[in-house]
Design a protein around this nucleic acid. Structure first.
Lengths: 248, 248
DNA sequence: TGTACATCAGTGAACGCGCGTTCACTGATGTAC
DNA sequence: TGTACATCAGTGAACGCGCGTTCACTGATGTAC
C-alpha cells in the first residue's frame, strides 16, 4: 500500500481515497477523518458495547496517536454524543424507509412496516440500540440535538395514527375519557398527530412503549423461557397493538 | 432472643443478634461479612451505576485490603451475580407485598398494586433496576439461579390474571384466534396462569412488557417532552392495560 | 506568480490514575484426640 | 480439660494492564499581499 515511489511525500494516499491523486482540501479531510473515527468507534461498540469504548483503541485502529483524536472530539463524551446522534438518525431513516414502501392508504400495513423496521434495525445493531434505549451512560447528559433526532421514529408512528384517523376507515373502540392534559404534554403532541383525539393518546403511548419494550426485552434476554419464535411473537404483538389504537 | 445465660460460649450470638461483645462464629462472620460486602457494593452501584463498581472501592469502603474480597467472591462477576440475584428477589418481594395488601377478589386493584409496586421499587432503586432491566453487562452471562429469581414478578402478574379468569367477573373482549403455540412456550406458561386461554397470552405479554417498558422509558428519559406527570401517566397506562387483559 | 505568515492535523512523551487478580504470609479461630 | 494441628480471614506487595487528557513540537497546507 502507498508505495511512495520517490521524491513525493505527497497527498494522494493521504486521502485514504482510491481516486487517482485526489488531494482533498483540509475541510474535506477533516470531514472524512471525523467520519472514519466515528465508523471505527461504531464498530468497536458493536463488538464490545459502549462501556468498553476507549479513545485509545479507536486511535490505535486508525493508526494514529491517541492525542490526535482531540483535534476532532474534545472529549470522550463528545464522541459518544456524535455516535448517539448518528444512531438515532440511522434508526429513524431505516424506519422511514420501511414505512414509505407501503401504500399510504394501508395504515395497518404502514404500522407493521414501521414497527418491524425498529426491530430489524435493533437486531442488526444491538449495541447501538442499547446505546439509545439501554441504560444511560452514568453522568452523561444527552444534549438537545440528540433529543430531536430521537423523535424521528415517533413522528412516523404518530403520522400513521393521524392518517388513519383522517381516513376514518375504522374507529378505535371508545377510549375511557380521561383528562390527559393532567399528565401529557398535549400541546406538543397534538401537532404531531392531528385528528387523533387526546383520549386516544394513552393507547398511542402504550403502543409506542410496547414496541420498544418488546425489542428491549428480546435483546436483553427477558423473553427467554417464554417466547420460542421472536419474529412471530413480535408480529402478533404489533398486530394486537394496531387493534388497540384502532387501525383499520 | 435465645438468652442461654451462661456456660455456653456457644450459640447465644449465633442468632445473628446484636448482643454486646458477641463474638461470632466463623460461619456467622462469613455470612455477615458477605452481606456487608454486598451492601457496600449495592450502595456504590446506587451512587454511580454498575459500570463504575470496582472491587477495590468496595474493599476500601470496608477498610480492608482488596485481596481480602476474594475470600468471599472469586471474581467481580460473581459479586455481580449475587447482587443481581438479590435485586430480583427484593423487587419480587416488594411487588408481592404490595399486591398482597389488596383483597383477593379485587383483581384490578391487585393488578394496579403490583404494577405500582414495580414502579415504586424502580424509582427507589434506579441503578439496581438498570442492573436488572437495562443493558446487560457485556460478556456477563446470567446464571440460571438469577433467571428463577426474575420470575417472581411475572408469577404475581400471572396469578392475578388467573384468579380473575376463575372469578369470571368480566371477560376479556374476544382475542383474535392465533396459534400462540407457534411462538410461545405454552407448556411453560399454562401452569402459571391456569384458566387463562392461550389466545389471551399475547395481551398478557403486552401488559407485562408495557409495565417494564414504561418504567424503563421513564427512568431512561424517553418520555421527556411527552409526559408531564409520570405517576398519573403510569396510572392511566396500568388501567388501560387492565382493560386490555380484561380485568374486572 | 511568488513570498511570508498563519493555521492546524498529527506526534510523542508524560501525568496521574484506577483496575482485577495472584501469591506467600501471619495469626487468630476451630477441631480432634 | 489440655494440647497439637488444621483451617481460613485478612495482609501487603506486586504484576501487568489500560485509561483520558495535556502539552510543546513539527511540518505540511492554506491565505494574504
Amino acid at each position: 500500500m502507498s508505495p511512495e515511489t520517490f521524491g513525493a511525500p505527497l497527498s494522494s494516499w493521504q486521502t485514504g481515497d482510491v481516486s487517482p491523486a485526489a488531494a482533498k482540501s483540509r475541510a474535506q479531510q477533516r470531514v472524512a477523518q471525523s467520519a472514519a473515527i466515528k465508523e471505527v468507534a461504531r464498530r468497536l461498540i458493536a463488538d464490545k458495547g459502549v462501556t468498553n469504548l476507549s479513545l485509545r483503541e479507536v486511535s490505535r485502529e486508525l493508526g494514529m496517536v491517541s492525542s490526535a483524536l482531540y483535534r476532532y472530539f474534545a472529549t470522550r463524551d463528545e464522541l459518544l454524543t456524535a455516535l448517539i446522534y448518528d444512531a438515532y438518525n440511522e434508526l429513524g431513516a431505516a424506519v422511514e424507509r420501511a414505512e414509505a414502501r407501503v401504500a399510504r392508504g394501508d395504515t395497518r400495513g404502514r404500522w407493521r412496516a414501521a414497527c418491524l423496521g425498529v426491530r430489524r434495525w435493533a437486531r442488526a445493531n444491538p449495541h447501538e440500540y442499547s446505546l439509545l434505549y439501554g441504560t444511560p451512560v452514568p453522568g452523561y447528559v444527552a444534549p438537545s440535538v440528540t433529543v430531536v433526532a430521537a423523535t424521528r421514529v415517533t413522528t412516523v408512528l404518530a403520522r400513521i395514527l393521524s392518517d388513519d384517523a383522517a381516513q376514518r376507515r375504522a374507529r378505535p373502540s371508545r377510549a375511557p375519557t380521561r383528562d390527559v392534559r393532567d399528565f401529557l404534554q398535549v400541546d406538543a403532541l397534538a401537532p404531531t398527530m392531528p385528528g387523533v383525539e387526546p383520549a386516544q393518546y394513552v393507547r398511542a403511548l402504550i403502543a409506542w412503549t410496547t414496541v420498544f419494550g418488546a425489542v428491549s426485552f428480546e435483546l436483553f434476554g427477558h423473553y427467554v423461557g417464554t417466547v420460542t419464535n421472536y419474529s412471530r411473537m413480535f408480529d402478533a404483538v404489533v398486530d394486537e397493538l394496531a387493534d388497540l389504537v384502532g387501525l383499520a
